[in-house]
């Protein structure tokens, strides 16, 4: 919990930052909900609205995480913004002098990120058929960036990701025969090793900001960005767990693969169907193993919330999806 004294230190520091870097006094400060691993605050300054994003308390979690530091995330965002990919514009990366810990400030973008609203609310009905193509276009622009110019980003390819999640599953030690079957299939069907593109790493519903008229206006949450296989970003949004009940629409619950791929190719990208399929199946396995990690977080006492416990019991959803996918369905 933040004590009143800490809260006022925090707002005072943010106010000072507004005066120094954004040219005015801070008004309308609110903490935003959402974002399980990061804090974000919306505030106004000089007639414009901004968002501060930072790790809890401004302190990066030590060790173990493959997520980018806030500073590296902000640098990556600046580079992709410059290349015409729709992301929030970073206006300031926090320094120790700011007294806010790690973090960065970006311009606020209005839009909806809650998947169920985008997939079901009437106000999004007209734009929904356009979303798959917009996603394809954005990803092609992202993947066309010169990855050699990206600094501070980790590299990972198909074999690396598969090994990482296989090790996590083995450490979990609860038997999952369907996951073992998927791991076997994935090791037998590894795509050619490539790590030649800037990959978002978590491109799916929930991280896409959508407006009723314009459609996708921003790609958020770049903390899993890395240099890797661009087909990973085409597979992940088609994982059945990200369809939120709309299974007839494989792309995020809103679109068809053909529209997604066609837009990607029209914008200069090249689709490797077999590799995309590999990443879809690996993505489904990954989410299933993440559910087992949440079960461990609960049973170990690290997180005793009922939500954490309940998510552990969602690993079985990915098992039925994997069995269907390994039979060539979906």
């Amino acid at each position: 919990m933040t004590s009143p004294a800490q809260a006022s230190d925090f707002t005072r520091a943010l106010d000072a930052l507004c005066a120094t870097h954004l040219g005015g006094a801070m008004t309308d400060y609110t903490r935003l909900s959402g974002g399980a691993s990061q804090e974000s605050y919306r505030f106004a300054c000089g007639g414009e609205v901004f968002v501060l994003r930072r790790p809890p308390g401004g302190v990066a979690k030590a060790g173990g995480s493959s997520a980018l530091s806030m500073t590296d995330e902000a640098r990556a965002l600046k580079q992709v913004h410059g290349a015409g990919v729709w992301v929030p514009e970073v206006v300031h990366i926090c320094t120790p002098d700011d007294g806010l810990g790690m973090g960065y400030i970006m311009r606020f973008i209005e839009g909806q990120t809650i998947a169920r609203k985008i997939l079901r609310d009437d106000e999004f009905a007209a734009i929904r058929p356009q979303l798959a193509a917009q996603c394809g276009t954005m990803l092609a622009r992202l993947h066309a960036l010169n990855s050699d110019e990206m600094t501070g980003l980790p590299r990972s390819d198909a074999a690396g990701e598969l090994n990482k999640y296989t090790e996590i599953l083995r450490a979990h030690a609860h038997p999952h025969p369907v996951f073992e079957l998927a791991i076997k299939w994935l090791s037998d069907n590894l795509p050619a090793a490539r790590a030649d593109a800037l990959v978002h790493g978590d491109f799916r519903m929930g991280n896409l900001m959508v407006q009723p008229q314009a459609g996708v206006v921003a790609i958020l949450d770049w903390e899993l960005a890395h240099i890797g296989d661009p087909m990973e970003d085409l597979g992940w949004p088609c994982v059945p767990s990200w369809r939120f009940g709309q299974h007839q629409n494989p792309v995020g619950g809103f679109g068809q693969r053909e529209d997604f791929y066609a837009a990607y190719e029209a914008a200069g990208g090249t689709i490797d169907r077999a590799a995309v399929r590999f990443w879809e199946i690996l993505g489904t396995l990954k989410w299933g193993i993440m559910c087992t990690m949440m079960a461990t977080a609960f049973t170990s006492g690290a997180d005793r919330t009922v939500e954490r416990a309940a998510i552990g019991r969602r690993a079985s959803e990915t098992e039925i999806d994997l069995l269907r996918m390994l039979e060539g369905q979906d």
């Binding site: 059945p240 369809r243 009940g245 709309q246 299974h247 019991r313 969602r314 079985s316 959803e317 039925i320 999806d321 069995l323 269907r324």
Partner: peptide
């Protein structure tokens, strides 16, 4: 676990 899951209903 999830008898309403879409993948289960499809199966």
């Amino acid at each position: 676990d999830q008898p309403n899951y879409a993948g289960y209903k499809t199966a």
